[in-house]
């Protein structure tokens, strides 16, 4: 059934675009490696984007899930693939910016091994608390943390996850401490937060927005550069008086290093067109994602900033993860 759909999509695609791309790339299906299981944020990003891409590329774009080792297994595979434009990677902030500073041996180097194509989407993180938690805003939280050092539990979606590091960054910027409680993914962390078993957490806005609306979680601040239209009352971290805790979770596309220039151009064009098409944009904003669709140059610059920032956080917080 899926094969049929792909075939028919391909057939339509070829019928429409065949003249333009008759010669050269792509001549066969393009594989997009997602280094996480089906159904996660990277997977969703990849599938939503590629559905649109195959129209402009005129070839099926197949998403292949290759989970393992915080995404480094699949990313390592892409790093070793032929740079012919038929293997792409859709990964998260963790894959590109956090794994490289956290793990001593990684099967890839995000700067040396990849041709960075685009930051596809981003979503701000939010600081949320259980409704019964005594502090009602960031200022009260910082005071509470100072009075009760090593007492308040910060739930995260895993040791070395972006929300763990955001918490560490928050402690460093405010001079406070808390107890880091890691979970296996964001969902169980949010569950325990709602149930009152953990106190506060930095989570992706999309994952908690419904809980905030339902009053099951208390929103203290957004880690974005401006307020979120869905929650106009919640201040940004900067407005709450804390500088430098501006964190987004982002998803980006890359290919093995050494893409031919024309292939790279075609891919960038196709990606930007897909991401900026109104229906894809609308679908992303429904789930709390903001389309970025940066150029490859902007991505490179952004990535080196992110890597150096998290490197500082990891070193200052003495955060380790053996591998």
């Amino acid at each position: 059934m899926r094969a049929l759909k792909l075939l028919s999509a391909a057939a339509i695609g070829i019928a429409i675009y065949a003249p333009a791309f008759a010669a050269g790339y792509p001549e066969k299906p393009v594989t997009v490696i997602v280094p996480f299981p089906a159904g996660g944020a990277s997977d969703t990003t990849a599938r939503m984007t590629t559905q649109k891409m195959q129209e402009s590329l005129g070839q099926p774009v197949v998403v292949e899930n290759k989970p393992g080792a915080n995404g480094s297994l699949g990313a390592g595979q892409v790093a070793k693939a032929k740079p012919d434009g038929y293997t792409l990677l859709v990964g998260s902030i963790g894959v590109y910016a956090i794994n490289p500073v956290l793990y001593k041996s990684l099967p890839y180097d995000p700067i040396k091994d990849f041709d960075l194509l685009t930051v596809a989407v981003r979503t701000p993180n939010v600081l949320v608390a259980n409704p019964n938690f005594p502090a009602n805003n960031v200022k009260e939280l910082v005071e509470y943390l100072k009075k009760n050092p090593e007492k308040v539990t910060f739930a995260s979606s895993g040791a070395g996850s972006s929300d763990h590091l955001t918490a560490a960054l928050f402690w460093q910027k405010t001079g406070t401490t808390g107890v880091h409680v890691p979970y296996k993914g964001g969902a169980p962390a949010i569950t325990d937060l709602i149930g009152g078993h953990a106190d506060v957490s930095f989570q992706n806005l999309g994952a908690v927005s419904n809980h905030i609306k339902a009053g099951k979680l208390k929103l203290l601040a957004v880690t974005a550069d401006k307020r979120n239209p869905a929650f106009p009352d919640a201040p940004t971290m900067e407005e709450a008086g804390i500088e430098g805790v501006e964190v987004y979770s982002w998803q980006a596309v890359a290919a093995p290093k050494g893409l031919p220039a024309d292939v790279k151009g075609k891919l960038e064009k196709s990606l930007t067109a897909a991401l900026n098409s109104p229906d894809v944009k609308g679908k992303f904003s429904d789930i709390g994602f903001e389309v970025v669709a940066s150029t490859s140059g902007q991505f490179s610059e952004f990535l080196s900033q992110e890597i150096s920032r998290w490197k500082t956080v990891v070193e200052a917080g003495k955060i380790t993860a053996d591998q």
């Binding site: 159904g39 969703t44 969902a187 419904n210 339902a214 679908k283 789930i287």
Partner: peptide, 24 residues
């Protein structure tokens, strides 16, 4: 909006793909 097993995690993924944010 909480998955109790891997299958439910996939169901949540499917809902998100459909533009529905799982939750209360």
């Amino acid at each position: 909006g909480i998955p109790s097993n891997p299958v439910m995690a996939l169901m949540i993924g499917a809902m998100i793909m459909q533009g529905i944010q799982p939750g209360p």
